[in-house]
Each structure stands twice: as C-alpha cells, then as structure tokens.
Amino acid sequence: MTSALAATRMNVPWSRFLGRHMTLAIGAATLGLFLAVALAAPLISPYDPIYQDAAVRLAMPSLAHPFGTDNFGRDILSRVIWGTRIDLQIAVIGVVFPFLIGTFIGTVAGFFGGIVDTVFMRLVDIILAFPFLVLMLSIIAILGPGLSSFYIAMALVGWVSYARLIRAQMLVLKSSDYAVAAVSLGFSRARIMFRHLLPNAVAGSIVFSMSDAVLVLLNGAAISYLGLGVQPPVAEWGVMVAEGQSFITTAWWITLFPGLSIVVLAFGFSLLGDGLGEWLGVNE
C-alpha cells in the first residue's frame, strides 16, 4: 500500500490524483478549512467570544452579527469560530489515545494469542457489555467534569474497537509466509510484531479512526450538552447547542449554526475516512 502511495506521489500529477480521489480531496479540503479557521481564530473572529453585550441580546442574524447573538449578547459567529479549536481538539485527542492504546493491545493480543489474548479480549467484552455513554458518564462523574476527564474516559473506553480490528488483522498476518520467514531468520518478536506485521495491519484502523472521530465529536458535544464536558462560558459547539435549546422556538440561530458546524465537520471526517479507505485499498 505504501508502494501505491509512493507511486501515486511520484508519477501522477496532482490534478489527476484529485480527479481520481474526489472523496478524499473533498474530505481533506473540509478538514483543512476547519483547521485554518481554528488556527486563524484570533484574526478572523469579529468579536470576543465571551464578551457579553446586553444591548444586542438575542439579535437576529444581521450584517453586524452574521450568525446573530445569544441570550447574553455574545456573537455566535465568533463563538462558532473559537469553538472550532475546542471541537477539533476533542476529535483529535479523543481518537489518538484510544487508537494508540487499542493498536498496542490488539497487536500484542493477536500476535501472542493464548492467555494474553484471552485476558485482553474478555476485558474488551466487559467494556462492550456496558452502554457506551453510561460508561463514559460514570467515569467522568468519578473524575469530575471537564475536558481532561472526557479524554481519559475516551481513552479508557474507546480503545476496544481498535484492539479488535488490529487483533483480527494480526491473526491473519501472523500466519503469512513473511511472518514465518521472519521467525526463521531469527528476528525478535518485537521486531516482527511492530516492524513487519503492524504496518500491514494498521490501514483498516486508520480508516476506522476517521469515522470514529465523528462519533467522538458527537460524544464530546453530547457530554458537554449534559454539562460534564466543556464548561461555560468557553465556546464549544455542544455547549452552544445546549444553551440555545431553551430559545429554539424564538432564536433558532443559536442552535442552528453550531449544530451545522458539527454536521459539516463530521461530514468532512467521514469523507476523509472513505477516501483514505479507497486510497489505501482497505476494501480490496
């Protein structure tokens, strides 16, 4: 797959590459846009996201406030822009740690099999036996509300899917001839596991991590909505949706714009995931 990657890089002009991988291109562009917005937040946001202007409470979208204002007179556009930083962070951190933990455990369990495998896979079963949100909420309740609790809870619960994916791949790959060859050449187990088998096993998980990012994003929003994640007055899309809820019939713009941002970002991740899958040949 890397060879395909390298070949694409070397031989095919970008225009044709993009033409052939529209999904990937659109997904990457969407995410790039959000990233740019997040980085440029101080430059492009017209107002301070937590500045309250009592004079313009619940103002309709207008030229001065393109996305309107909320019940405290805060500018929604500025809050959506600053919220991008938090929500991207949630999606990335919420995926990276489960990915790393799950990949490691899956690799070890799949490669060694036997008792190691049994222990880890029963642990996976136990975690999967609880409804996901319930487990998340209980962990956060123990640790106390806040983003770092959310990340820890994600890491503790989210790794199971990655562990299962990688383990299944490892079970297949460890009986491949090149794995046997590596054993017969006296390579150490760690080398066989991490240098030879893991790179061949990981493509599927990378693709999955993109759709997982969508779920994490929605989870983060849900947790914040329940008041256990990001604390007011920090601008985060889930919190904003929650705050706007009571005004939904009179001031729809408070919930609409952050909600839309969640949808578009999720859409971007999911396109990127599909595109990556196509590109890396995961479904072949």
Partner: peptide
C-alpha cells in the same frame, strides 16, 4: 507464494 513471502511494505 513469492508475494506472500515478502513484506509488502
């Protein structure tokens, strides 16, 4: 199988 015997990466 010459392909399966070499690490594709």
């Amino acid at each position: 199988d010459p392909y399966n015997a070499l690490n594709p990466r």
